[in-house]
Simulated scan of single mutants.
Amino acid sequence: MLPLRLSAAALSAAALLLAAASTTASAHTHDTNTHDTKTHTPVAGFDGGFETPVVPAPSLFSTYLGGQTAGPWAVGGNSVDLTSDRLWDAAEGNQSLDLNGSTSGSVSQEISTHPLTSYVVSFELAGNPAWAPALKTGELRVDGTPVKTFSFDVTGHGFRNMGYTRQTAVFTNLLKSSVTLTFVSTSPGLGGPVIDDVRVRSCLLVLCPPTS
C-alpha cells in the first residue's frame, strides 16, 4: 500500500512532471515507437476510438449535443460531430470526431489511475477543411486543467488528404484513483479540430521517457 505521507522530495520530483507535452510527426508510424512497446502499458478499460455508435448510412456525420454521450465519450460544450469516412478519411477505423458541431464542443472520458504514475496521452489531429477559420485550436485537459494546447492548419488539406499528425502529452498522477480526460475545441464556427485514435499508456515516473 502507498504510505499516507510522501516525502517533500518525492512530491517535488513528481510535481516537476505534472504537465509536459509535445507534438510528434505524422500519423500511422506511432506503433513502431519503442517507448510505447518497451516502457508504456495501455490503460485497461479505456476506449479511445470513435467507432461507436456507427454513423448510419447514407449520413455523413451524426451530431451529439452537450449532455449526450457518443460511445464511451461524454459530450460537453455546444456539440460535436461523429464523422464517417464517407465524408473524410479517418486516421484509424472508419470514423473520427469533429470537436465542433454547430460550434465549439468537447468530449470527456474517465480513466483509472495509479498513484505516482505518469500517463502518456497520444492522438491523431487534423481539422475540418470545409469551414473557416483555417487554424483549428483546442486543448487537452486532465480534471479540468490544460496539459496541452494543440492547433492544426487545414490549408492545403482536403477530405481525402486530411494530414493527420500524432500529438503527445504527459501528465503525472500523484494520489488519485481516476482522472477525467477532456478534449476541448477553442475554435469558433461549424468546423473544428478533428481527433481520432486516442491512446493512453502508463509508465513509472523514473521510466517515463520525454515525449520530445
Rank of each mutant, 00 (worst) to 15 (best):
V170D: 11
Y164Q: 11
R160P: 02
L87A: 11
G93L: 08
L175Y: 13
G105H: 06
W131V: 12
A90T: 01
F150L: 08
K148M: 10
S202K: 02
S106G: 14
A169D: 01
A132V: 11
F123V: 01
T186I: 07
A134D: 08
N173D: 00
L140Y: 09
R201G: 06
S79N: 04
L82G: 11
A132H: 10
L125D: 02
L125A: 05
T180H: 07
A90V: 01
A91Y: 11
G127F: 07
L116N: 05
K176I: 08
S104N: 10
S112A: 15
Q95Y: 13
V194C: 10
G189W: 09
P193T: 11
G163V: 02
W131N: 15
L174T: 09
Q167C: 10
R166I: 03
H157N: 13
L125V: 06
T113R: 07
F183E: 09
L140V: 10
Y164N: 10
G156Y: 02
G191P: 13
L87H: 10
Q167Y: 02
T180Q: 07
Y164M: 10
N128C: 11
N100H: 12
V121W: 00
S178Q: 08
L125C: 02
E124V: 03
D98W: 04
G138K: 01
V120R: 15
A126N: 06
S108K: 00
P115Q: 09
N161V: 00
D197H: 08
E92L: 14
T172V: 03
T182A: 08
G76V: 06
T172N: 06
L140R: 13
S104G: 09
R201N: 07
